[in-house]
Design a protein around this nucleic acid. Structure first.
Ligand SMILES: [Zn+2]
Length: 536
DNA sequence: CGACTTTGACCAGCGC
DNA sequence: GCGCTGGTCAAAGTCG
C-alpha cells in the first residue's frame, strides 16, 4: 500500500492546486481504494486511520483528480505553455508531432503506472474480501459449536472476540517477544526464524493450543514488534520520530534509504507489521537460490553466527524502489535445505510465477496484522509468550506454516515428506484434483498450511498464477519444493468456493480433534493430493 | 556499458 | 566504552 500515498504534493496557497504526476496517481489510487472499500463491506485491514483521514480529506481532491485525468493533458499543455506555446503557435507540424509523441509517451507511462496500482488495489480488495469470508466461515462454525465470536473493527483492523466469557482458545499467534533462550541454545535458525526453540510448554491449557489460535497481548507503550528481543527495553523512551524511523526498515537496525517519505504516512504500527512480517521458506534446493519469479540483486553477504554457511542479502530489482528483500541461507544442520526469508510487499505488478510467493508474503503480513489486533489503545507490543517454532529443530513433520518470533515470521517448511499415515483424514474434491487433509500431532505453536489457509484463505485467490500453479502441482508431489507449495497455495485458493470448503473441512477436523484429543498437541493438517502418498 | 556480484567498511542496537 | 552482531552501503570487479 505504499504506493497509495504518492509523493508529496504541492499545493498552492492561491487555490491553485499543483499536483505533480505521482501525487496525482496517489490521489487516484486513493479514490479507487475508497470505491473498493465501499464495495467491501467497509472492512479495512491495511488501512489505518491516518490513511482514512487522508483519503477523506482528499475526497474533494479525488473528484478533482478524476477530472484531472481529462484536464491533466490540457493543464499539462498549459504548464508546458511557458515553454512551448510559442512553438505551438508556430503550427509547425513537426513540433506538433513531437508534442503529441511526448504526450503519448507520458500517457503510456501513466497508464502502466495506473495498471500497477489498480492491480495492487484489486489484490488488496480480494485480500480483504476473502479475509472477511474466512472470518464469516469461522463465525458460522463457532456458532455451530456454541462459541460466540464477535468481530469488530479496532483501528481499522478486524478483531474477533470470544464472548463465552471463558478462557477459550483464541486466535493464537503471538508475535511478540519470547523469552530468549540461553545464548548457547540459539541455534543456526535463530537469525532467520527468531530464537525459536523447541517449544512450548508454557502455553497454558493444551487445548488452547489447538489450531489457528492467535493471541496478542497488549501493553500501553510500544508499537514496535521489530526485533523485540532487542528493543523492548527502549520502547518507553522513544519519541514518535524515533519510532517512526524504526518502522522503516526491513530489519530496522538502520533506516534504510530506500524507504520513501510516503511510507511514513502510514500509521507506524501498520507499516511496521507489514514491513516486518516475514515469510521464511525452508526447502530442499541444490541451487544457491530458489527461483521465485522475481528479479533480485545481491547487496550483501555475511557470516551469521552459529551457521558456517553465509547469509546472502537480496533486494527486488523488478521496480525501482521496491522494498522487498530476502535473505538466503543454508540450514546449518542440513545444508541441502535452503532457507529463504522474504519481507515486504512489492510495489509493482508481478509476473505470474512470482505471484504465489508474493501472495504468501503479503498474506503473512495480513495474517500477522489480523492476528495481532491492537487493543483499544491501538497499540501492539511484543510480549513474552510462545510462538516458538519447532521448525528450527528440524523435527520431522509436514509442510508447515509456523509463527515465530522475534520477527513476526511465518515459516513455510517444505522440507518434510508428506505423511505416510494419519490419525484422521478428510478428502476434498476439486476440479483441480482431490485433496486430502491429514491430521498429525504437532507442537502447539505450529500453524499448518491449511490452518494458515483457513486463517487467510483466499488471499492467494484470483491471481494469475493459479493455472500455472495448478499444473505445477500436478507434476510435483507436495512438499517437494517451494514452488510446489506456492503453486498449491495458488491452485487451491484460486477457487473461493473450494477455499471455503477447505476451510470448513479444516475447521470441522479441528473441531473433532478438539473433542477427541484431550491431551493434545496441535493439529497439523497436511494438504496432499491423492496418489502422492497413501492415506489410511 | 549496464546490470550484477563481491567484499570490506560502516552503522546501530545490544550486552557486558 | 567496547566488542559483537545483523544489516546495509558502495567501490571495485565481473559478465554478457
Ligand atoms: Zn519487487
Amino acid at each position: 500500500m505504499d504506493h497509495l500515498n504518492g509523493s508529496p504534493e504541492r499545493s498552492g496557497e492561491d487555490g491553485k492546486r499543483v499536483v505533480n504526476e505521482l501525487d496525482f496517481f496517489g490521489v487516484k489510487t486513493g479514490n479507487l481504494m475508497m470505491i473498493k472499500e465501499k464495495e467491501s463491506f467497509h472492512v479495512k485491514e491495511e488501512m489505518n486511520h491516518r490513511d482514512d483521514e487522508r483519503l477523506q480529506g482528499m475526497q474533494l481532491d479525488v473528484n478533482t483528480g478524476l477530472n484531472l485525468l481529462t484536464t491533466n493533458s490540457s493543464s499539462d499543455k498549459s504548464t508546458l505553455d511557458d515553454e512551448t506555446s510559442h512553438t505551438m503557435e508556430d503550427k509547425h507540424p513537426t513540433n506538433k508531432l513531437a508534442a503529441l509523441r511526448t504526450e503519448i509517451d507520458r500517457m503510456s507511462v501513466e497508464n502502466e503506472r495506473l495498471k500497477g496500482l489498480l492491480n495492487q488495489v484489486n489484490n488488496n480488495y480480494h485480500v480483504l474480501h476473502m479475509h472477511l469470508k474466512t472470518v464469516m466461515q469461522r463465525e458460522k462454525y463457532n456458532q455451530k459449536t456454541g462459541t460466540a465470536v464477535e468481530y469488530k473493527m479496532i483501528n481499522g483492523l478486524l478483531e474477533d472476540q470470544k464472548q463465552s466469557g471463558v478462557v477459550v482458545p483464541r486466535q493464537f499467534m503471538d508475535m511478540g517477544r519470547i523469552p530468549l533462550p540461553e545464548k548457547d541454545d540459539v541455534n543456526s535458525q535463530s537469525s532467520f526464524e527468531g530464537r525459536s526453540g523447541i517449544n512450548c510448554t508454557n502455553s497454558g491449557s493444551p487445548k488452547n493450543d489447538i489450531v489457528e489460535s492467535m493471541e496478542c497481548k497488549t501493553k500501553t507503550t510500544s508499537l514496535s514488534c521489530k526485533d523485540s528481543g532487542r528493543n523492548d527495553n527502549n520502547h518507553g523512551d522513544r519519541d514518535e520520530e524515533s519510532q517512526e524511523h524504526e518502522f522503516s526498515g526491513w530489519v530496522s537496525n538502520k533506516v534504510p534509504k530506500f524507504i520513501s517519505p510516503k511510507d511514513e504516512d502510514q500509521t507506524p504500527e501498520t507499516m511496521s507489521m507489514i514491513r516486518k512480517a516475514r515469510v521464511s521458506v525452508r526447502a530442499r534446493c541444490e541451487a544457491s537460490m530458489m527461483s521465485d519469479g522475481c528479479q533480485w540483486r545481491k547487496y550483501g553477504q555475511k557470516m551469521a553466527k552459529g551457521n558456517p554457511c553465509p547469509r546472502a542479502y537480496y533486494r527486488c530489482t523488478m521496480a525501482t524502489g521496491c522494498p522487498v528483500r530476502k535473505q538466503v541461507q543454508r540450514c546449518a544442520e542440513d545444508r541441502t535445505i535452503l532457507i529463504t526469508t522474504y519481507e515486504g510487499q512489492h510495489n509493482h505488478p508481478l509476473p505470474p510465477a512470482a505471484v504465489a510467493m508474493a501472495s504468501t508474503t503479503s498474506a503473512a503480513a495480513s495474517m500477522l496484522l489480523s492476528g495481532s489486533m491492537p487493543s483499544a489503545d491501538g497499540l501492539v507490543t511484543p510480549n513474552n509468550l510462545l510462538a516458538r517454532s519447532t521448525t528450527a529443530s528440524c523435527a520431522p513433520s509436514l509442510a508447515t506454516l509456523s509463527a515465530s518470533a522475534p520477527f513476526p515470521t511465518v515459516t513455510l517448511d517444505l522440507t518434510r515428506p508428506p505423511p505416510t499415515s494419519s490419525s484422521e483424514s478428510q478428502r476434498l474434491l476439486h476440479p483441480q484434483g482431490e485433496f486430502t487433509l491429514n491430521l498429525q500431532p504437532l507442537p502447539h505453536n505450529v500453524m499448518s498450511v491449511p490452518q494458515a489457509f483457513s486463517k487467510f484463505s483466499g488471499l492467494h485467490g484470483l491471481n494469475n498464477g493459479a493455472h500455472l500453479a495448478a499444473s505445477q502441482m500436478q507434476q510435483t508431489p507436495m512438499a517437494a519444493t517451494a514452488d510446489t507449495v506456492s503453486a498449491a497455495t495458488a491452485a487451491i485458493t484460486s477457487d473461493p468456493n473450494f477455499t471455503a470448503a477447505l476451510v470448513a473441512a479444516i475447521t470441522s477436523i479441528i473441531g473433532n480433534a478438539k473433542s477427541n484429543n484431550t491431551n493434545n498437541n496441535n493439529i497439523n493438517n497436511a494438504i496432499t493430493r491423492s496418489g502422492d502418498n497413501n492415506i489410511n
